[in-house]
Amino acid sequence: MRILLFLATNIAIVAVASITLSLLGVGSYMTAQGLDYTNLMIFCLVFGMVGSFVSLFLSKWMAKRSMGVRIIDQPSNADEQWLVGTVAKLAEKAGIGMPEVGVFASPQANAFATGWNRNDSLVAVSTGLLNKMTREEVEAVLGHEIGHVANGDMVTLTLIQGVVNAFVMFFARIIGSFIDRAVFKNENGHGIGFYIATFFAEVILGILASTIVFWFSRRREYRADIAGAELVSPAAMVSALARLRAEYGQPSDMPDEMVAFGISGELKNALGGLFMSHPPLEKRIAALQARYGR
């Protein structure tokens, strides 16, 4: 299923980007004299932004299928009634439209929010979170996720990712053309060396540029924690994060594309945390305690 979703997303990206370039009248960025930088920049911006926004528009659909989320259309018991009612109360307090509410099977305590705008979102919690936390702690986690939606984090992250993708593609092709000319002696810079060098440049630049995206992802977690504290209570938000810390160090069982959207991301220690989607839980707890004096 995940492979099919990946293929479907990429086919949609190529189709939309190709149509957009055609409508803009953008031709090939490769000419007999070398790269056409104007066409190259437009090409990279279109593919970079289209890729990010297609993923955003499909995010709810993909999340439901990749995570096996069961949407609660009609609550079947008191617990589901409480969950839907709590999300409705927090959404109204935050000034956003009522999100879809769902539950996914996982022994880990986790939750996520996604969706392309504030009034068309999805908030889902794991069975592990419902089983391991008190209702006040679950409410704080829901407040955290509602905070992501209210802050427009999904759209902002999409814009940042799109711009980063565009610049990685742009500079990788310039590097590829230069290496093809300088090393492989192709006068127009479009030989096999161009494609090899561009591939490796995209990988290296992509890794470096991803630190920008991860930095924003960490910043948004602090803001969402504050939202949870304001919508519910600081004590409940701190207690929920402390409960999550009991699972600290365990790899997330969420798909890679969803880890950044969960309340607790996969622990990564590489290069001092530059590639962590979430700050360490100790720092998040300390930030809340410093802010609210607890």
Rank of each mutant, 00 (worst) to 15 (best):
S59Q: 13
T156W: 14
T114C: 15
F53D: 07
G147W: 11
V103M: 10
G206M: 02
V87W: 00
G85H: 03
M98A: 10
A229G: 11
G85L: 03
A260T: 05
A240G: 10
G206F: 02
G152N: 10
S22L: 05
M154G: 07
I196P: 01
E247L: 09
L267I: 10
V84W: 00
R219F: 09
G273R: 12
A197I: 07
F199A: 04
K283N: 14
E266S: 10
L7F: 05
L23A: 15
L90A: 03
E266M: 09
V238W: 00
P75S: 07
A8E: 14
I72Y: 11
S121V: 00
V155T: 15
G206L: 01
G27D: 11
E136V: 05
M258Y: 12
V125P: 12
M1S: 02
H148W: 12
I72M: 09
F43Q: 06
E221N: 13
P280S: 05
L288K: 11
A63T: 11
V87F: 00
L142M: 08
Q289V: 08
Y248R: 13
T158K: 00
G115K: 11
M62P: 06
P251C: 10
P75C: 05
F171K: 03
I174R: 00
R223C: 09
S55W: 00
G189P: 06
H278T: 01
M258G: 09
A111V: 15
K283S: 09
